[in-house]
Design a protein around this nucleic acid. Sequence first.
DNA 1: TTGAAAGCGCTAACAC
DNA 2: GTGTTAGCGCTTTCAA
Lengths: 310, 310
Amino acid sequence: MTIKKATLKDIAKAAEVSVATVSYVINNVTSQTIPEETKRRVLEAAKQLHYVPNLAARSLVKQKSGLIGILVNRTENDGFWRQLHYSTFINRLEQLLTARGYHVVLFSLDAADPKLDIISERKLDGVYVVDVRTENFHLISSRFSIGVPLIVIDSIINDSLFYKVNYDYDDAFALAKASPLAPFGYIIIDSFNNEELTQYIASVSGLEQDAVHFLRDEESLSRFLKNKMNQTGLALSEFAAIMAAKYVNPANLAVICSAGCPDILPNAAVRISFGDLKSEAVFQLMMKLLIAPREGPDTQYVLVKADREH
Amino acid sequence: MTIKKATLKDIAKAAEVSVATVSYVINNVTSQTIPEETKRRVLEAAKQLHYVPNLAARSLVKQKSGLIGILVNRTENDGFWRQLHYSTFINRLEQLLTARGYHVVLFSLDAADPKLDIISERKLDGVYVVDVRTENFHLISSRFSIGVPLIVIDSIINDSLFYKVNYDYDDAFALAKASPLAPFGYIIIDSFNNEELTQYIASVSGLEQDAVHFLRDEESLSRFLKNKMNQTGLALSEFAAIMAAKYVNPANLAVICSAGCPDILPNAAVRISFGDLKSEAVFQLMMKLLIAPREGPDTQYVLVKADREH
DNA sequence: TTGAAAGCGCTAACAC
DNA sequence: GTGTTAGCGCTTTCAA
């Protein structure tokens, strides 16, 4: 019952040509001129035998795998919102990459001790690293060869080797501050493994330290919100907002929607959305790097601005 | 600057042994007895050269890739809740598989026309297919050889070749009906590509057709909920509930938490949760199949019961 | 226009 | 104990 997988050799035999010829027509190699008749025979045989190329073999000789890695740093006690936070982003990105013929490897890293062997083991053609801790970044930059396009997401890292893509929080905050709810009495931030980014966001908010809450667990959030019924607040990410809305009136909440699903919010909440812009940006950037690899990035940071149209 | 990747041959040269010997010690082959001294030299050289095995090469000879595919059917107009729905499940599953040394390929299928070549191209060792339409299932069952462990998730399919894992909705509904909110005036169902599953859930609810709403978009949901302020309702999935809670009092809502994040719900809502049980179940099942492949499943369906403890 | 053959990096007989 | 070697399936140079 098990169907023996057909190989180039099988097709060659069936079509009475050599494996080389089969390879040429299967891959549409333009540098070779193959008469229609031969082509037809080969294609016919391939169909007959349900030929599917073995990408491991191809990788081996071409020295590229067709795989793109999305490596996401996680910690032991990640709140459920951390899981959800990248869901839309990853889905969208995967779909874009798939549409371009790449296959996506999803891989969780231990934020405290990221194991990066997968990059070289699988000969990933490109890598996204999401939300890295600065102190572990050297593992990335040192341990593997330049030349593998590497895009760092949601991390502020002082390094000039790789592209880093973040949301433009300055822009988002500017929009937020222009909303009728401003000025805000407090802000709730869905914190990152990358401490610098978390801190940066806090500082851009311009609020005093005790008006800033980093989302850890529901318990402490509820304590933080206890006396804030009558104040307006700002939430970073839809999920921070959803949690907050359990304790305060959503009409007093402005939300910077960094998770790509603003529609999940109570209708009363004020939204600043980034839409799918980040997936698109990192996808385009990767395509650029894949086509024209370069020594280092031309800009330290790529900042994704908020979505003006909706 | 680009670091030349070391191969077995390089190590062999450095350690002054043969590639075979290197392979033996690298892989801890027990059938060979290697003296400590040799072992040490080889390991030393490997470390020195930053050796990382090339899994494509290994796959080629071992005829197994170490890759597990998670193939998720999607449609053009998937609501954001569909994206979020599998987020926790996939993350958890990926982590379990990664911990066992597998790498995970995430792949979106067009529910209307699923392209499954990736399975044979990448020689996936195991495959999860999530939420398949019945009419496309023949593409799966026919097109590829038995022997590749295949687990179908969230789909009711009349077929005896593969394992199918679903939530035990009978169980969940039984629990729901035991809640103080029962009997319910209506139910909101986050619908699936697999029509049979959607219908099954509707029928198990025991409610009249006009008390059943299939989540499509917010507009129609709000219409459905218009006159239901004073009734109690049941929502399938946290996200269906969140959407509903925009229009009705969450205290009147019982929720069958199929998305793994009950904590996102308003505290007033009544919860029936499945926890991480489905990821665990499909993981264990896959491990079983990977170790002892069999001709067909011993049971048609594996049903994951609701989580009794929390 | 086609094919022979080398070789990508690795594993596993089998020989020494 | 260790090494030689034949492939795994594919691409690509070079020769015919």
